[in-house]
Structure formats: C-alpha cells, structure tokens
Simulated assay, not measured.
Amino acid sequence: MNPGGIDGQEATSLERRLAQLEARAEIAELMQLYAAAADRKYTAGRTKQSPAVVRAAARMQASCFTQDAEWHGGRFGGTLHGRMAIEDFFAESPWLFTAHHYGSPSFSFHDAGHEAGAHLDGADVRWRLLEVGIREGDGQVVLLTGSVRQTCRRTGEGWRIARMEFDALHAIRLAAEPDRLRCIIPLGEPM
C-alpha cells in the first residue's frame, strides 16, 4: 500500500504538471525581462538613452535568446542568426519610445524523453503583443498589435528563446506628433 495514496503513474503526472507550471513561470519572467530591456532604451521624455545605456539594454534583451537563436522579423528586422546579430539589431532601434506588453501566452511543452517525463527541455509559446511606440524617423505615435511565436529551450542559463517570429503584426497610427503621448508618472518617480 502506498502511504501517500498516490501511485507511481499519478506521481509522474503530478511531477510533469509541476514542471510545466514552473516552466511557464520562468518563461513568463523571461518575457518580462525581454520587454523591460526593450523599453529601457528610452526615456520617459520620449528620447533615446545614451549609446552606452542603449547597448547595455540591447545586450540584456539579447541575453533572453540562445547563442544560436533565430529572429524572424519580416519587414521589421528580417532574419537574424545568433545572439550577437540579434543584440546588434536591438542596439540600432528605430524608435524614440516603446512600451511592450506580451500577454495571453499558450504553451506546448517537449520533454527530454526521461522515464519520469518531468524534465522539460523545450516549449512552443504563442504570445499576444500590444506595443505603443514613437517612430524615430517621423515622430509618429503608433500602436502595434499582433502575435508572436517562439520556441524556447532550457539551457545552462535557464529558459531562453531559440526562435522568435511574428505571426501577424499590425500598426495603427495614433498621432502624428510625439507630444500626443505624455508620461503622467515617470518610472521611478514617487506618487
């Protein structure tokens, strides 16, 4: 008799479900880091940070990817291979301001084939994207919306993005002047 009342098969199922919950949380944290780093390149006053700050933010954003990652941005960035190429692209951002929001993720996990089935080594993830940005060239305020597909892999650095691709990306012009987007409470300011 099993003192815990859980047989081996149920325990394996519970281990796998727990592993999936932990992986979901870790991948969600990874996307929070990615979005925060992307937005760190700009000031609350709608200008780019110094080149050193932009490069450090681009490096942090690119650290969310595997060393051999692929980025498929279509007309926005094309296809990039490797973390360094992705970092260089992020450092040359065509924006004066961005606020990225990734939500409503859906996950499909792969495991490493271990007998217990609880060791996850990969995930396919879909995110809904909502982003407000001010374009550098013309100062227009735009709203981007769409969906992103990712393949994530567990690495020695934790979960990382191995492939990222936009499924759909739509842009809506909200205003022709950058001053139409105002910062009401700057980051770090007391309320």
Results as ranks from 00 to 15, higher is better:
G4D: 14
G5A: 04
I6W: 07
I6S: 09
D7P: 00
E10V: 09
A11E: 12
R17C: 06
Q20W: 03
E22V: 09
E26W: 00
E29A: 11
A38Q: 06
T43Q: 02
G45H: 05
K48W: 00
S50Q: 11
R55W: 13
R55M: 12
S63V: 03
C64H: 07
C64L: 08
F76K: 01
G77I: 04
G77Y: 07
F97M: 04
F97E: 01
T98K: 01
A99M: 09
H100W: 06
H100P: 01
G103T: 09
S104F: 02
F109V: 09
H110K: 11
H114T: 15
E115A: 15
A118C: 15
R128P: 00
V132S: 05
G133L: 13
G133N: 07
R135D: 15
V141R: 02
V141E: 10
G146N: 10
Q150R: 05
R154V: 07
T155C: 08
G156L: 13
G156T: 14
G156C: 09
W159A: 07
D167M: 08
A168V: 13
H170N: 14
A171Q: 14
R173G: 06
A175I: 05
E177K: 01
P178E: 15
P178A: 15
P178L: 11
D179F: 05
P186G: 02
P190E: 11
